[in-house]
Design a protein around this nucleic acid. Sequence first.
DNA 1: CTGAAAGCGCTTACAG
DNA 2: CTGAAAGCGCTTACAG
Lengths: 342, 342
Amino acid sequence: MTTITLKDVAERANVSIATVDRVLHERAGVSARARQRVKEAIHDLGFGQLPVRLTRAARGKLRFLFLMPGLETEFVRNLYDGLKKARTIVPDVEIQIEVQRVSLADGKGIIAALEHVGPDRFNGVGVFAVDAPGVRQAIDETVDRGVPVVTLVSDVPLSRRAHFVGIDNVAAGRTAGRLMGKFLRGVSGSIGLVTGNQHMRDHVERHMGFRQIIGMDYRGLKMLPPVEGESMDARNRSIVIDLMRDHGDLAGIYSIGAGNGGIITAIEEMQPARRPVVILHELTRQTRKALAAGAVDAIIVQDTGHMTRSIVRLLSSLAFSEEHHDDQEKIRIEIFLAENDL
Amino acid sequence: MTTITLKDVAERANVSIATVDRVLHERAGVSARARQRVKEAIHDLGFGQLPVRLTRAARGKLRFLFLMPGLETEFVRNLYDGLKKARTIVPDVEIQIEVQRVSLADGKGIIAALEHVGPDRFNGVGVFAVDAPGVRQAIDETVDRGVPVVTLVSDVPLSRRAHFVGIDNVAAGRTAGRLMGKFLRGVSGSIGLVTGNQHMRDHVERHMGFRQIIGMDYRGLKMLPPVEGESMDARNRSIVIDLMRDHGDLAGIYSIGAGNGGIITAIEEMQPARRPVVILHELTRQTRKALAAGAVDAIIVQDTGHMTRSIVRLLSSLAFSEEHHDDQEKIRIEIFLAENDL
DNA sequence: CTGAAAGCGCTTACAG
DNA sequence: CTGAAAGCGCTTACAG
């Protein structure tokens, strides 16, 4: 592999070496035309062939846009914090991160936000996606404009996003189902299902996975119809109170979405003779505390620190057309009991 | 921060710039005396102040030594494979890894191997340690000679090793205990404990953690005295056959070490009316297969890929006196069911 | 906004 | 094994 020099680029672009240098370092005082010619010349000669010290300098800054849910749960806040910390995860590159909040009720917020995203403004986009009509196309158009897209937490599998950073939610639901079955070994009774809503692909998938396992292997357990609490504490609380009132044989509760504070409170208030087995998702202050206190049996987790480091690494390697380490970027479905939540 | 130049180093060392260049790139044709003077000059001026492109060049190669158990279980083989893959995890640095096998029966193998380790031969050492007499001192002397040491899987906490890459094994035992208790909700019976041997700190700690939880919270479960199988399939097989013969109420088996093939085989052969709950450690071909087949209930895992990437990153940042990302290097105690082993 | 030229730092080729 | 010198590539300072 031969490294190209500023001289090569200068000759091809018909400008002086000094001008090439200015463009590569994004210094002021270059006409749009000259800048354009230099960029084309570099493109023709191959960006990756530039000497490391110069590409490092040229890299200088990367700007990433993240589209995140407007509904700010603690899980989402943990993702924000993770993104902030992850800015230093790629050596020698200064990464700027802009977070924009969009409604996940339908895809309109995402579609509108992506419309204005071009390579002039961002080197990559991370999307906490909802798989609604038009979103796939908006992602593909962003990619066509030259901005790589990586989905986060919730995928749009048929789009041309470069990667998905998150867990297999069907498998996560199956994991919850298996745990529930094993914790309720030999028990007969009903299982209450509390979900966010049916727009959210991850919730639907978890529900599906859970249903598969319980239906297949645990005939003694009857699943009640899922109730939508919109991931809100207040609604979840009253849902669980109703569940416990109406079903004397309630043996377990699987909470698919957020708003787990409401679920924990409801059980505390009702003080049932035998607490139902509770399995829920994501570590937050409340769920951790409940786990430590023995008020919850297990928590299924996707590590927000890992996910945010991963998406920043992936967007960076996409921006530089570099390889990435597949093993390292795989997000695992983790199971936490009080004893391994350190 | 001012970067020092070859000229600065050359003046201080009283040699020519060309000689400094040769030393920094480890090119041949430099007298030991000149090399020594240059190294001292760089040391005085501050290694970290060298320009990046030169330190990158000077970095060129890093050589790490890994002391690994002579007994080659699949877990240990997975660590080898992980080390091989991890050689490319640090950008722009060529990493050479030498693996040396030592007996873990006592500390002698480790002590002997560390004796010959100096900064001329290695830039860092990873030790799968046994906490035996003399090992702590051997590690400290290696550190004093200027070679950073990181322990892997099994720690020597009172030594001056820079980091420990592995899990908290007491917590891992507690996690196993909690799972066992929850899987045996309301059941009375005995629990069989199969361990490797009592020299291994990690085994002792897991045992301790398991005992804490069962003793505290699950009075219906009686723990039988632990039996040492030396992590060998054959011995573990006969241990489990004896356990099942002698204890009609055997409700669970916790396997603390390796040799799990023997445990799985024994249960298959005995065909008990109700299989005891089985919890064991580490994903291998055999344990995975047994998990998928439902012959095992849960596996406690420390991710060998994560651990090996972590130790290579840590040794590299120690060699370059660079910062590391603490969050990223924390090894988690993972729980695998068939459903989240993807 | 641009380039010719001087400067700086590292590398290479050669002479001893 | 060593250094003086030429060379290469990037950067800076200046003139227009």
